[in-house]
Write a protein that binds this DNA or RNA. Structure first.
Length: 562
RNA sequence: GCCCCCGUAGCUCAAUUGGACAGAGCGUCGGACUUCGAAUCCGCAGGUUGCGCGUUCGAAUCGCGCCGGGGGCGCCA
């Protein structure tokens, strides 16, 4: 498992500080966290630490003076090329070129696992995402959810966490009944009956289609039941069918879940009753007029309703949404024992965050273990034109349609191009366009180009797999490419720490750029220079490894031809 | 009324969570293919980081107050 150079450099500085203190060259003080940043400008080397700027006050010395004394005591390390004191008192590190070149071998040895870190130290984390109502097709918003969740799961896995992907099937709410009623009406209509369609029912065409399909496949089976039984049975049946679509479409997007967790289970298993009792025992429950309320000092509101006499749920239904959350968070963090449970919610649910946190605390759990990621909405566009969607009228662009029109790779890349905190404009025209305006292909092109080069070399009877002398890799563009490849490890680390998947797209573009620059400057296959050719073929293969890794982290394909 | 997110180059977005001179892509204009993929590369131009105070060695980033856009606010999920 690799330790990041950044962290190793921090350790060196810490050693340098301690050594200087021991020799009395610096006054004694508590060592703060050593901040290491990547230099923005090449003149500042690869890494820079502003730590001496911060220490100046406490040490009552100029930052530059401190930096000089620290630098004098830095222990040696293979990656250290040059250390300089610069500006107001930064300690700048330039990596050793020989060490950089040697990293090519490390990358090739690591292969597909290049970038694997151990930040998680095996701790378990569940990522629960999408979890859209199983009463209709997946929409663009849920698609963003899917891409964020799945990519985050990939990142966390790469960072060394045990990750489980979960889809929470909301099959215990009143929406299920409403869906059953809508489907029942369509079913009757399909059989030629003049059935009234429920107010606020599901108007989408898919309900009509499904009603016809069921009428065709199952004939008069439901018409012969009691209405209430038929509605319930059709609700179940409809949900089962919708889940089949959802599973299929998400799979086509490259998203696969470990667990499909049914909300009903929380109630049927009696967990909700037990969780409610725990809250009661701990004094978080008040009852007035037969209604059950959750109260907590962590809440803005006085109380949140858990169960009401106005709503009498069926045995497998939930009393309120919060009721399920109570049981579910206990299930995640205690029964199944995940160290962390990550929830990915649309920002329209932000009001529920404090409630879930309050519930977790009330159950005696550390609320920090429940992490909620809120993402903003998606605006669908065609060029300048807004694509209007209305879920109520059943008009919306579904994941299925997006897959047919755009394809999985552009969907995934586009939905990762900005932070989850920003509303995202998804331009269908741009996503489809196979041109240089579309950044999706920029990255994949670099990968395909490498594959093509390796084919070319092989055709000329070079052994592309043969070991070479990496110390020949000294060109500025070669070293820049290696630096960029190594950055993948840091990108994984920061993305995992910040739970921010968008960094991958930016990194992927930069990596492709670094490769194209190398390609421009350095001829790889050259009969006149056999040794250099072998060394560069190694570099090219390493670049392919890194590109493939970041593409897979984003859930994209790695084409050898385009 | 209260809560959340956003406001950065003409457009779409970054900025390693407080660090050095705020960076990319697209768009504009100009340039590069008889040699490994031109879906590429190179160059030019483009900024009071919405506005105003404050915190400190240092602010796009933190705090307060405004302005503008989006979303939410008890039995929908």
């Amino acid at each position: 498992m690799t330790q990041l150079v950044r962290d190793q450099f921090a350790d060196l500085i810490k050693e340098g500080l301690k050594a200087a203190q021991e020799r009395g060259e610096l006054p004694k003080f508590e060592l703060p966290t050593i901040v290491i940043e990547s230099s923005r400008q090449p003149e500042h080397g690869d890494y820079a630490s502003p730590i001496c700027l911060r220490l100046a006050q406490e040490a009552r010395m100029s930052p530059r003076e401190i930096a000089t004394r620290v630098a004098a005591h830095l222990p040696p390390a293979p990656f250290v090329g040059q250390v300089e004191i610069a500006g107001p008192g930064y300690i700048n590190l330039t990596l050793a070129t020989s060490w950089l070149a040697s990293q090519v071998e490390r990358i090739l040895e690591a292969g597909d696992s290049f970038g694997q870190l151990d930040l998680g130290r095996g701790r378990s984390v569940q990522v629960e995402f999408v979890s859209a109502n199983p009463t209709g097709p997946i929409t663009i918003a849920s698609t963003r959810n899917a891409v964020i969740g799945d990519t985050l799961a990939n990142i966390l896995t790469a960072a060394g966490f045990q990750v489980e992907r979960e889809y929470y099937v909301n099959d215990a709410g009143s929406q299920v009944r409403k869906f059953g009623e809508s489907l029942y009406a369509r079913y009757l209509q399909a059989l030629g009956q003049d059935a009234p369609f429920p107010k606020d029912g599901y108007q989408g065409e898919y309900v009509t289609d499904m009603g016809q399909e069921i009428a065709q496949q199952e004939g008069r089976r439901y018409i012969e039941m009691e209405r209430a039984d038929a509605v319930r049975a059709l609700g179940r049946e409809g949900i089962a069918r919708v889940i089949t679509w959802v599973r299929r479409d998400l799979l086509a997007l490259g998203v696969e879940f470990d667990t499909w967790f049914h909300e009903k289970h929380l109630h049927e298993s009696g967990l909700f009753d037990r969780a409610l009792q725990m809250l009661r025992d701990r004094g978080y429950i008040t009852e007035r007029e037969d209604a059950v309320w959750f109260t907590s000092p962590d809440l803005d509101a006085d109380a949140v309703l858990i169960r009401s006499p106005q709503v009498i749920p069926e045995p497998d239904e939930r009393p309120t949404y919060l009721a399920s959350d109570v049981a579910y968070v206990w299930n995640k963090l205690v029964e199944r024992g995940f160290d962390r449970a990550i929830y990915i919610w649309g920002a329209d649910h932000h009001g529920d965050v404090p409630r879930l946190k309050a519930v977790a605390r009330a159950l005696g759990l550390d609320p920090e273990r429940a992490v909620i990621i809120l993402y903003q909405m998606v605006n669908l566009k065609r060029g300048e034109q807004d694509v209007r969607m209305s879920k109520r009228a059943g008009e919306f662009v579904t994941l299925r349609e997006l897959l047919d029109e755009v394809g999985a790779d552009p969907i995934r890349f586009m939905l990762l191009t900005c932070t989850v905190d920003s509303t995202l404009d998804f331009d269908l025209d741009l996503a489809i366009e196979q041109s240089d305006k579309n950044p999706v292909y920029y990255v994949q092109y670099a990968h395909a180009r490498i594959a093509s080069m390796l084919r070319y070399a092989t055709d000329l009877e070079w052994d592309a797999e043969a070991p070479g002398d990496v110390s020949l890799l000294t060109h500025k563009s070669e070293l820049a490419l290696i630096r960029k490849m190594l950055e993948l490890e840091e990108v994984i680390a920061t993305s995992a720490t910040q739970l921010a998947p968008h960094h991958l797209t930016f990194y992927a573009k930069e990596l492709a750029t670094a490769f194209h620059a190398f390609y421009r400057d350095c001829r790889v296959v050259d009969a006149e220079q056999a040794a250099l050719t072998q060394a560069r073929l190694m570099l090219v293969r390493a670049a392919k490894t890194a590109l493939a890794r970041v593409l897979r982290l984003m859930g994209m394909t790695t084409p050898d031809r385009m």
